[in-house]
Design a protein around this nucleic acid. Structure first.
Lengths: 109, 109
DNA sequence: AACTCTTATCGTATATCTACGATTAACGAT
DNA sequence: ATCGTTAATCGTAGATATACGATAAGAGTT
């Protein structure tokens, strides 16, 4: 039962933590950047850009998809990934509100 | 060698991922909020607020400290934690710049 | 049908995270 | 000096994460 206490936290905190978790690996940060830079959504080109094996990249893409930050549509023999701009907008706002909340504090020690 | 490929990513991505990792658990999000809400830095009151054991809270505090988001000074028998506002500011800016970068994309699929 | 290319998934090894009880360390109070 | 309080650390168990090779699944091509 080591990983089940998260349910006892506020839903907002859980959601924020999930989004943060999606960004908690440089590979996934890089993937999002690549998806943003190319206008059209690409597929396996991500594998060429990253220093990781194809299976590993697929796993990271799945993580981003599970977090809702990325959309994937099966398009013939190749998959098409692109950013989920609405979800990213929500994540951005949540992060912003979170940091705003923290900003009201004054350092003391 | 499963966890060593991170070195091959840009330093900015690694730093962003580290900050995100610090926020990637609802307990740590809650801890930061508590530290922000109370004007003065508190110590073991965090344990009372969170649904976790003292040892676990101490671990989460250490994670936040390692990420640089929190400062701790040993003050007599009790420890005094407070937010590292400069680091939080940098994290905030990095996150903001990151989301700005993503915003230039247009959804396609 | 057989082949090729692309991507997802499986299986696996290792590393890290999460959580807790127990112990230790540090300090103030008695 | 002893006691009590507070918090860090140790040890440990179980769950996730990370990474890869190997394999499977899907669609187009020959």
């Amino acid at each position: 039962m080591a990983h089940s206490k998260s349910d006892q936290f506020p839903a907002g905190d859980i959601q924020l933590a999930e989004w943060a978790k999606a960004l908690a690996h440089p590979a996934r940060v890089a993937v999002l950047k690549v998806l943003a830079e190319r206008k059209s959504c690409i597929c396996g080109e991500i594998v060429d850009v990253l220093p990781l094996a194809q299976a590993t990249v697929s796993q990271h893409l799945k993580a981003l998809k599970d977090a809702g930050l990325v959309q994937g549509t099966i398009d013939g023999p190749r998959s098409c990934y692109c950013l989920n701009t609405e979800a990213l907008q929500r994540a951005r706002e949540a992060m912003g509100a979170f940091f705003d909340h923290l900003d009201q504090a004054s350092s003391c020690c």
